[in-house]
Design a binder for these strands. Structure first.
Lengths: 198, 198
DNA sequence: GTCTATATCGCGATAGAC
DNA sequence: GTCTATCGCGATATAGAC
């Protein structure tokens, strides 16, 4: 099935933005990749910024939603919950489109305040909230040692993010990430050994 | 004491690069901040890229060097070594110039291959090497549970990096980082509890 | 909805006077 | 080592024909 011109523009633009950044991605380059003139592009979008904002809105659309009930259910089992969380995180990390969007996010993160706010909300706050609720339950169940659930969540999340960041960097240069392919699982094992009740 | 024109250029340029990125920082803006014309700037640097490369070379100059002997000595004591490492990491995180350089690094990381290579070398590989040697010694001394030293190092480093990354983001928007001011110390405490021999 | 043509601007960089 | 003046380029964006 073929894409509409508008969809083609978004596809090519997101690739270019994620490789070059906003400023270095010219309307010319986008139009050229799509196979139309710059002027034709303005029939679909008001200007360059509107193209970027349309894409930026999609970045956070893929974020995983888990309903409260399911979390409370799964958290009681302890380690399997963490394993499932890490697996989801890993899937997103290696998903081609998510990877592109993550790159685009990071590349503009330091020059775009709106993206920063959204990033902290969606990639940090949301995950910390979800995880600390789960760790709180695990503490109540006597599965893990008592501690500040927020701290434990922060510690758990930080490694996953670092691995994703590391993998993202390596993949830009098409370098091997095989030594990191099981790092998230190793993280869960290591982490669980550190917090579980002996 | 006053700076030479060349030093002023580097100072203003590094600030602009760290705020806007390479592409969006124009020679005009740099010259304007310094208080000279663009053309006068070319008496000090061949072109814009030479300015950037001069600054980029300084980014990694601040990286902490610890000699082998000292590490082996300190690692035997276990937790104090980790505390010292974290304190150093924290000092760099909150140092004004290091912060600027870190921002400049991150802002260009995804569009500059040379910076990526250097980043992985200096911020990851070097630290992992140092830390895994220390963890290996701690295992030999029977202070911590046996495990892959590289994995333990990766886990320890990842949280520190995440905290630094988080703080850097917040500080761009002049937001409070007080809730993160002791996060590195908390990380050491939490981590040590997880790995120490009971 | 696409094209050609064009307006307008800011960019990096250079020539030459002082 | 600074200035004024200027070049050539590529950028975003618009007007109007098809």
């Amino acid at each position: 099935m073929s894409l509409s011109t508008k969809e083609k523009i978004l596809k090519e633009a997101s690739t270019l933005f994620s490789q070059l950044g906003y400023k270095a991605t010219s309307v010319r380059k986008i139009a050229s990749k799509v196979g139309i003139r710059e002027s034709a592009l303005y029939n679909h979008f008001k200007n360059k910024e509107e193209i970027f904002l349309t894409i930026a809105d999609e970045i956070f659309a893929t974020s995983v939603e888990l309903d409260r009930e399911k979390i409370q259910e799964e958290a009681k089992r302890g380690k399997p919950f963490l394993a499932r969380f890490a697996t989801t995180y890993k899937l997103v990390t290696f998903d081609k489109n998510s990877e592109k969007m993550f790159r685009l996010l990071l590349i503009e993160l330091f020059t775009n305040e709106a993206l920063r706010k959204k990033f902290i909300q969606e990639f940090h706050d949301k995950n910390i909230k979800l995880l600390s609720e789960a760790f709180f339950i695990m503490m109540q169940e006597g599965l893990i040692r008592s501690n500040d659930p927020m701290l434990v969540a922060y510690e758990f999340l930080s490694s996953l993010f670092y691995i994703r960041f590391h993998i993202t960097l390596l993949r830009i240069d098409s370098e091997s990430t095989s030594h990191l392919s099981t790092q998230m699982e190793k993280h869960v094992d290591f982490f669980w050994e550190g917090i579980k009740v002996q």
